[in-house]
Amino acid sequence: MSWFLPYPLLSAALLALWLLLNQSVSPGHLVLGSVLAVLASWAMAALRPEKPRIRRPGAALRLAGMVLIDILRSNLAVGRIIVRSREPGVNAGFLTIPLDLRDRQGLAVLSVIITSTPGTIWVSYDAAKGTLLLHVLDLIDETVWVRTIKDRYERRLMEIFE
């Protein structure tokens, strides 16, 4: 089975993409999409990427829900800063956070979470020292931000990926 479908999640995602693009679940599209998905996963196997291991799918779902709520809340917060504040972004600043997360997929997910949340952006990561440089729009209390990133996201990502 593993030689036939080296990346089952990737193949499933590609098939879903094909069906959504064509807006149909007719047998013809199912067959064509499946063939393309399998061929693409073989091409991917030739590149030999690291295989991500998701240990706890339940925790991943909970994290996704939490991130959605956080994105909604920070949308409102950043919107308020832009509209109401007389001098918007006066508290902005850079912030360095030491990370314990080492897994590359986990770091990639963390970077997407942090950057797509309005108000925080991932600037750079030092792999040797394991420190992360962030830019935060509303940096009033540094320890609050460090605790938010480490307790809310990093701990859960370590549960999922490590």
Binding site: I71, L72, N75, V78, G79, I82, G89, A92, T115, S116, T117, P118, G119, T120, I121, H135, L137
Partner: peptide, 10 residues
Amino acid sequence: VHAPTLGTTL
């Protein structure tokens, strides 16, 4: 750089 993320999320 923080501003456009409002349009790309909510």
